[in-house]
Design a protein around this nucleic acid. Structure first.
Length: 352
DNA sequence: AGCATTTGACCGAG
DNA sequence: CTCGGTCAAATGCT
């Protein structure tokens, strides 16, 4: 099964990669034809984005699970064959569910899932109400008094466990010594696709985390999502039409040799306000990154792809954008886009 | 009503 | 047997 899955996985990646290549070829061809309509290019760009998103999700999932792979698919089999709701509690049923889990190998796999710990210090102003979010949506499923610990331990699972077969969990334990410190133990990785990340919530510096290798791309992506900001100085006049709510970040960037270009607009978007949704190298061999993002509020919508023009990514993204037009709202103008200085790429080729 | 949280019970590991 | 992790009914919240 593992072997056949690896084969299927590789085949799937290959197929998606080929799809991307063909779409790019078609795009190049269409752009060489004078009669190409804007809609055609838009449609093509959508297809390309879908391919790239799928590939990214695949690689993301792959990198978060130790070999051999994809828990999500096996979980899917379980979910579809076991009924969760409705019936009264029964030990027999509970046992049969556990047996079923073990039969398929869930419990063993969950044990071997990557685990890493973060320590979060909470400010006094926050009222000691617990650590701020990590960008994911969690649901508490238990709390336990732990022997020798002053404070109970809380257990959380991903909100999308049943909807998207995401088996990530975390435990939150307040420190005995310093009640403002919470130790958060993450277990397993998210394979869910959480559409909106809370951009206002700060994330921990990557270096603190002490996560395992398999977590790298996952956490980098989360961090990037959380830290990406748009400076919308020039958008003031558009705010009634598209009321971005985006925190300002440290500015002072030069734009020499760095430029991003809005190359696409779209009306089929996700999220509230600004929501970076996709980050990847433009090609598997490239150090350059493509960032797709979106905004959809009060009917405004756009998506843009950004291409970094330098190979050195251990720096801040900056972009003076060109003006582009949306099929829905007319013209947008972004002052520039930048990456929070607290973020840095240790390895630019994080998705290879 | 539909969702999240609380909490006592259950279960497996050690 | 003890303890940590999970389940699921009861309860709370919006």
């Amino acid at each position: 099964m593992d072997c056949s899955f690896n084969w299927e996985y590789k085949t799937l990646v290959n197929e998606l990669t080929r799809g991307i290549e063909h779409a790019k070829q078609l795009k190049a061809y269409l752009s060489s034809v004078a009669s190409t309509s804007e809609n055609q290019e838009l449609l093509l760009q959508k297809i390309l984005s879908s391919y790239e998103q799928s590939l990214l999700i695949l690689k993301w999932t792959d990198s978060t699970v130790q070999s051999p792979k994809p828990l999500p698919l096996t979980c899917g089999a379980i979910e579809s064959s076991v009924s969760f709701g409705g019936s009264p509690r029964s030990d027999d049923k509970k046992r049969s569910f556990k047996d079923h889990q073990e039969l398929i190998g869930i419990s063993k796999k969950r044990k071997s899932q990557p685990t890493w710990t973060e320590q979060v210090k909470v400010s006094v102003e926050s009222g000691f109400e617990g650590p701020t979010g990590d960008g994911y949506s969690w649901r508490k499923y238990g709390q336990k008094d732990i022997l020798g610990a002053k404070y109970p331990r809380s257990y959380y699972r991903c909100t999308y466990r049943h909807m998207q077969n995401c088996w990530a969990t975390k435990q939150v334990q307040r420190s005995d010594d310093d009640p403002t410190v919470f130790e958060i133990t993450y277990r397993g990785s998210h394979n869910c696709h959480q559409a909106t990340y809370s951009a206002k919530q700060p994330t921990l510096p990557e270096k603190q985390a002490g996560y395992q290798t398999g977590q790298y791309s996952n956490k980098v992506l989360m961090n990037l999502r959380a830290n990406l900001r748009v400076n919308t100085n020039d958008l003031a006049k558009n705010e009634t039409a598209c009321p971005f709510s985006i925190p300002r970040t440290i500015s002072g960037l030069t734009d020499e040799n760095r430029h991003f270009q809005i190359s696409q607009v779209d009306d089929n978007l996700i999220g509230n306000g600004y929501s970076p949704s996709f980050v990847s190298p433009t090609t598997p061999e490239s150090n350059y990154f493509s960032v797709s993002s979106s905004c959809q509020m009060n009917g405004c919508g756009m998506v843009y792809n950004l291409h970094h023009s330098e190979s050195d990514l251990n720096d801040i993204f900056s972009a003076n954008t060109s003006t582009t037009s949306s099929p829905l709202m007319g013209e947008f103008s972004l002052d520039h886009l930048e990456l929070d200085p607290s973020f840095s790429f240790d390895n630019p080729k994080i998705f290879l």
